[in-house]
Structure formats: structure tokens, C-alpha cells
Amino acid sequence: MNAGGGMDGIDRGPGAGEIPLLTVEDLTVGFGGGEDGGMSIPLQGVSLRVPRATRMSLVGESGSGKSLTASAVLGLLPEGARVLRGSIRLEGEELIGADERRMRRLRGGRIAIMFQNPRASLNPVHTVGGQIAEVIRVHSGAGRRESRNRAVDLLDQMGIPDARRRASDYVHQYSGGMAQRAVLAMALSCRPDLLIADEPTTGLDATLQQQVLDLVIEQVKARGASLLLITHDIAIARQTCEQIAVMYAGRVMESGPTEEVTAAAANPYTAALLKAFVTVDRGRMYAIPGTVPTLSGPLAECPFADRCEMVGPECRERVPELRRIGGREVACVKA
């Protein structure tokens, strides 16, 4: 069935016809400059859709705009950055240009985020439990005692032993893995519809990564929430999320069901990224030749053209749009 609602009228498989939980369309974000030039444009028309109760990964090299996309969704772009074009909708409600009061209610309420460095994400001068309780208080208006109890419950659900006592501890008394569990508890404290996890396991020991990742997945599933997992590690994306979106140079290059995309990449960049990871196992590292282009203006050609093995003259003519191919969307003229 063709929903006819989206900008390209694409059938979106399961949940088609429904409004996705999060829709990002043609999101373009620029830094500095103005008409006089000197502007860099790190997001060049990002489009993605996160359906309800779905786990989606946002994969890409550093500088590809993954985290910036998350910041834009939360309405917390860094200083000097502004949205030039595009739309971000939470269940159809436009977030770009929404007033700060509204955004504050969404942040931590319907959209929660957890960052890479859990110990830095918690304030050193307040107890861990107190910080979680504070978020609950801000959003639900619950009393001190009740929010405190809910915070302890959450810590307990995240597998922190002796949660009631540990809630009174400060972050320096927590290990990295524990701190990330606490951060997850805080993120989930107001039952968000969407959890954005920005490299949630990158700062952790390898042995803890899997545990924390499993916990995130389990909790998100149990709550019927959606997950937007930002990672540079396509292996993690493959193992945890049913949907994948591959970003490169501020654009989504390919998105679709993870299995389908990783089994046979339709975009040469995705293929190169997969190859870079797969070949690590065989003892030899594959590196994509060249470097990510600097985004000092609007693109005029495929951003991957200079590094692509399959590049042809048609790649230089214009920026490839995301096109629907089978169950996925691909931005490549050759696909």
C-alpha cells in the first residue's frame, strides 16, 4: 500500500501508513557564516524514519553527523549551529522552531538520551539516586519521596545490586559499567518513547560492552520504546538493531532492515564500511582510501565519489537522492 503521505510516498513495510515515531526529513544544519560564505554544513539533508517500538542504528565514521543529528532532534544544537532546512517530527508534531518550553518537556520526557561517557554524564556533587529522582520530579511532578522510590526501583531494574544504598552514593563511587546503568535508569525514568543512545558502550571495557548493550536492548524492548543507537561500529549495529541507517558526510547513504542491508549493501559506501569491519577478523585491516570531504558548502556531487571504487561520471553530476529499492532506501545513482 502506498501511504502517499511521505515526501516520496514510499511504503515502509511494517507499520506502513502509520506515522513513524520520529521522522527526520531533509535536515540541513550549518555552522557559522551566512550568505558571505565561510559556512560549514555538517548535515546535508538527513532523512530517516524511526517507527514505534523499533531499534534503529545510525552508523557512520566520526564526523559523519550522527551525533549532530541527535542534537538536532533534541533541539540542542551546539552554539553557532542552526537548522537551515528540513523537518523533524515526533509523531507528526514539528519540533523545529518549537518553543523551548515544549522542547524541555520532550527532552527527558518523550525523548531521552544517553552519552558515551557515563561518569561525566552524572554530576559529581549530587548523589546518583538524587539526580534520577530530580528528573522524575521535573517531568512527572511526583513528590520527593515517591520520585526517590522510583529512582531506586529503576536502579534495581538496571541490575544495580543493593540499589537503595547505592542510590545514596556519588558517581565517583560507581564503576563505569554501573554508572552507565545509572545513566540508563535516568534516561528511562520518564518512560520515553524514544531513547537515543550515543555510543553508549564506547567508553566501557570490552567485557562490559555486551552486558550494557544487552541491558539497553532488553529495557527498550520491555518498555515498547524505540531506540536510536548511534555507533561507529557496524558490528554492534548488526547485532542489536532491526533497522540501520548508514551516514556519510552529513547524509544518509543507505537505510533499511539491518539484515538486508548488511547481507548485500546497495551503496558502495556501506559495502566499504562492511568490508572495513569484516576484514579485521582475517588479520588484515581494510581502510577506505581517502578522507571524508570537508563540508564547507552544499554538495554538488556524491560525497563519496572521490573514494568510491565504482565511481563514474554520472556520480559527479548531482547529489544522489535517497531512492526506494526493495525494502530499503539508497542514495547512489548506480544502485
Partner: peptide, 26 residues
Amino acid sequence: NADFVLAARCAGKGQFTILRRHVLPN
């Protein structure tokens, strides 16, 4: 720009709450 201040903003706390509760005590 500390992570915990960003985290507090992401948790939907207001400017003055963040200043009073998260920045000044530090």
C-alpha cells in the same frame, strides 16, 4: 559544556535549575 550539564539539559531541566543545582555547587 560538561557532559553532566548537557545531560541535564537533555533531561529537560531549565536554565536556572541547571545553574543552581548542577553548575554552582561545583
